[in-house]
Structure formats: structure tokens, C-alpha cells
Design a protein around this nucleic acid. Structure first.
Lengths: 164, 164
DNA sequence: CCTCATTGCGCAATCG
DNA sequence: GCGATTGCGCAATGAG
């Protein structure tokens, strides 16, 4: 008995009176064992009565539910409460959906921010590396610089220095 | 003028009453043997249809709709079609919600990835900068070193840092 | 005017 | 037993 939720027999019994429409469409599949014979639903047939008359022995309380009298005051009260709960639940659900959507937007923004930062850092890194290389070359070229040159003309060698 | 719908009433609004209609469509069974009483009491109030204000003129089509006979075959057909559409719409809605949720997860992952990368790059940068500083200090200290060594500043530093 | 899509709502069955 | 969820159908409304 896992969870056979919603018995696919559309006994739509909403609104005021009961609407019994046996409709279980499914677009392209609807094979139900037509062995349902004594399918009774609305007709209230409360088997013996437990405590109200004198009998005794409370059965395992496994009996069919009385078709909830729609006139009952109890019923209306329960219905109203449920309607309220449903409303609340749906409101929450929608709110959650919106929040999630907003979260997506926020994350997307953050994402862009991060990517920009990465780009910046990468560029900085690249520049520093180039500087490094350049310097190394200078050292190599001027291992023995001819004394008498403060200008120390830099090596005209500085092409292609970008890598990523 | 956004969405003036629903009459806003805590009572059973539409569908004041419903009739038992054993729609022997073509699906399940449930041949209600129940003695279907003539529970038919649909408030039929078809206004004359004098709308335009005068006494004649063509129909500005502003009159109340006939309470859609639930018995009508046309009606049932329309209802079924709508039910199908509703189902479809809701399915899509749910799917969309799930997709959005997943998008959030993906974005979160991506963000983590990006942040990690930023961390790495920052570290690399920091190392390089330190190297530079160190070198600068060496230079400063040996502004005038007794020329006689080409390795003025060894700095065998080899903090390998590679970027993926 | 019609068809399909959306949306708010109530009902009932379950779940926790 | 009770509120929260969920699937479903209905009707009003929106959009094409």
C-alpha cells in the first residue's frame, strides 16, 4: 500500500449536489476493469450503528465513511477551514515560486559580477607576467652593459605578450 | 482594471446546483443504478435580452449567458476540452517551476566554480606581486654593488603557479 | 463567435 | 482530529 492517491474515478461531487460523471479520460489511455459492480457512493448506507442505539462492541472502525452530509453544520465548518488552508497553501506556493525566480535573477547577477572580476584578475595577472618576462629579457640582454649609459634603452623586443 | 474576476463571495458561488448526469461517455463505467431522481433545478433565468437600452436594436451581446445547460452535449464537450487544457497548463506550470529550481542549483554551482577561480587567481597575483616586491628590495639594497657578479639578484624563487 | 490558455476557487483524498 | 498538500473539475477571463 504505497500511495494510490486519487482513485481515478471521477465522481465529481462538488458544488451543492452531487454530480456523478464517470469520466476518467486520459487522452490516450483509459482501460479500467469494468468489474466495478456494486459501486456505491453517494447513497448513504451506514451499516449497523455502533454506539447510538445500544449495540456495543466498537468495531475496528474500519467502516465506510458516511457521505458527509452536506447539510451538516460540521461539514460546512470543515469545508470552510479547508478552503482557507488551501488558499493559504497556494499563496505560499506561488510566493515560493516567485522567490525562486528572483533567486535566479540574483544568482545571474552575481555570476556576471564574478565573471567580470575574473576577467580583471586575469588581465592583471597577464600584465604582471609580461612585466616579469620583459625584465628577465632585460637581464639577459644586459648581462654586461657597457658602462656609461643611464638611459639603458629598453629592448625593442616586446611583441606578442599576451596569453590566457 | 487588472483582473476583475470572481464575485468575491464566501458562499458557493457558481454552480449553485449540479445535476446527476451519468455521462456514459466512453471511459470508466460506474453505471449508477441509483434511482436518479429528477434532481434538476437549474435556476434558469434568461433575461429577455433588451440590452442596448432601447427596445430593439441588434444584440450588443451584453446579456447574461444562459446557465449553460449541463445536460447539453455541447457543454460536456467544452468542459472536457477545458479540463484537458487546464491539466496541460498546470503540468507546464509545474515543469517550469522545477526548471527554475534546477536553474538555481546550476547557477549556484557555477558561482562556486567562479569563486574558486577567483580565489586561485588572487593567490597567483599575490605571489607575483610579492616576487616583484622582493626584487625591488634587492635592487634597492644593491643599488651600487661592486660590479663583479652577474647574478645581482638571484632570487631562485620558483613558486610555480600555473593557471588552468 | 470559437478555441485554447490561465487563473481563482471549492471539493475530496491524503499526508504529516 | 487538524492543518497542509495535491489532483481535479468548474467557470470566468484572457489572448489569438
Amino acid at each position: 500500500m504505497s500511495r494510490p492517491s486519487q482513485p481515478k474515478l471521477t465522481a465529481t461531487d462538488h458544488n451543492g449536489v452531487s454530480v456523478i460523471q464517470s469520466q476518467a479520460h486520459a487522452t490516450t489511455s483509459s482501460s479500467l476493469p469494468a468489474a466495478i459492480a456494486g459501486l456505491q457512493q453517494v447513497p448513504q448506507l451506514i451499516p449497523a450503528n455502533p454506539s447510538t442505539g445500544g449495540g456495543k462492541a466498537l468495531a475496528p472502525s474500519k467502516m465506510k465513511k458516511p457521505p458527509a452530509d452536506k447539510d451538516s453544520d460540521e461539514y460546512r465548518q470543515r469545508r470552510e477551514r479547508n478552503n482557507l488552508a488551501v488558499k493559504k497553501s497556494r499563496m505560499r506556493s506561488k510566493q515560493k515560486a516567485m522567490d525562486t525566480q528572483q533567486r535566479v535573477n540574483e544568482l545571474k547577477e552575481e555570476n556576471e559580477r564574478l565573471e567580470a572580476k575574473i576577467k580583471l584578475l586575469s588581465k592583471e595577472l597577464s600584465v604582471l607576467k609580461d612585466l616579469f618576462l620583459e625584465h628577465a629579457h632585460n637581464l639577459a640582454d644586459n648581462v654586461q652593459p657597457p658602462a656609461g649609459a643611464e638611459g639603458s634603452s629598453p629592448a625593442p623586443n616586446s611583441t606578442a605578450t599576451n596569453g590566457q
